[in-house]
Design a protein around this nucleic acid. Structure first.
Length: 335
DNA sequence: AGCTCTTGACAAGTTACCTCA
DNA sequence: GATGAGGTAACTTGTCAAGAG
């Protein structure tokens, strides 16, 4: 899914807002996979031609997109997930081997190592999760679809992760928002969790991040919209004043008839009546606006993206142009 | 090469459990 | 102690890509 909005055409300093919110996983996941590294960072996929959030403001409004909360350079710290953890290897009660098989030997080399280094070494703290007991009971799942074939009647138990586990996972998430299988298993061993639990935690964490980011984006776009609406109003006021000035003293009346190249009423260039591109910017601005929000968006955006952001602009105040009275029809002698 | 099927991973949405006021 | 809200672990479903046949 992709949401997009484009508002207004730039014309030499005119406000232009081009908003695109790529919510879909298409590009994101494609970028991740085509990178050949399972653990590639999703925010790197944002550099793809279809970023998850793209904003271009060519306006005097002076708004800037909030800076990315700078991904810190990979902090190399003493925990290589591709190496078997010193403590937990083999003695993690909840560990199943269906995810990786006998993982430890295979972990020593990492063909697709995406630089897996986790920040903390909780093994030094003798970390014991609160889930030990619960983890014993369940054989794990080998895939995310196998949720109903384990531990028979024992319904899902809500396991609260300890503070240390959460902090460790959080730090890991800062380094890699996605995990490759080896990282997952190593992390699970380190934390005495099942790999499935680590996987679920990362999925939920990504979802929370995205939700939070969406809220931030929405707030920001609302502010953009308000600011642009104000700016639009101001420009219209200015335009009305200029028009009033012009009708009071029509300068073209003093020009010879042969040099009169523009109809004073419709402002259409007489020599090329068929071309819409010959419309003066003001005339284009005062052209009848499409009635539906979707049509407005389609007109405004060359890419014709459907957009839920259109709702933000559904308020007629956001389309002052549409509320302008229709310009009088050109005189009959007008080309 | 093109097609179908399987598998694995993930996003999005939902459910259910736990904690706390 | 009961209760409702909020947080979140766990689950379900759908989609996509890669690989095998």
């Amino acid at each position: 899914m992709e949401l997009g909005l484009s508002l207004g055409a730039a014309d030499g300093g005119r406000p232009e807002l081009v908003l695109g919110l790529g919510v879909g996983r298409g590009e994101e996941e494609r970028g991740r996979r085509e990178g050949g590294v399972v653990g590639a960072r999703w925010w790197e996929a944002a550099a793809s031609p279809e970023p998850s959030v793209r904003l271009s403001l060519v306006t005097s409004v002076g708004l800037r997109w909030p800076s990315e909360n700078g991904r810190s350079a990979a902090r190399a710290r003493g925990f290589d997930v591709n190496r078997a953890p010193s403590v937990a290897a083999g003695d993690a009660p909840g560990m199943e081997e269906d995810e990786e098989g006998p993982a430890a030997p295979a972990l020593s080399s990492s063909p697709n190592d995406s630089g897996g280094s986790f920040p903390l070494d909780l093994s030094a703290h003798g970390l014991r999760g609160p889930t030990d007991a619960a983890a014993q009971g369940g054989g794990g799942r080998s895939s995310s679809r196998a949720s109903d074939d384990d531990e028979g009647a024992s319904a899902r138990k809500k396991l609260r992760l300890s503070k240390e586990q959460s902090a460790f996972l959080e730090e890991s998430f800062k380094e890699h928002s996605t995990l490759n299988p080896k990282q997952k298993v190593a992390l699970a061993k380190q934390l005495n969790l099942r790999p499935r639990q680590v996987e679920v935690w990362f999925q939920n964490r990504r979802a929370r991040t995205k939700l939070k980011q969406t809220e931030v984006d929405c707030e920001y776009l609302k502010r953009c919209c308000e600011t642009l609406t104000k700016e639009n109003r101001r420009l219209h006021k200015e335009l009305a004043e200029l028009r009033a000035l012009k009708t009071a003293r029509p300068f073209y009346m003093h020009l010879p008839a042969t040099t009169l190249s523009m109809c004073p009423s419709c402002e259409r260039v007489a020599s090329n009546p068929a071309s819409a591109s010959t419309l003066a910017p003001e005339a284009a601005a005062t052209a009848p606006a499409p009635t539906t929000a979707a049509a407005r968006t389609a007109v405004a955006s060359p890419e014709h993206r459907p957009s839920s952001f259109a709702a933000l602009f559904a308020d007629p105040r956001s389309f002052p142009l549409a509320t302008q009275p229709r310009p009088p029809p050109p005189p009959s002698n007008c080309l």
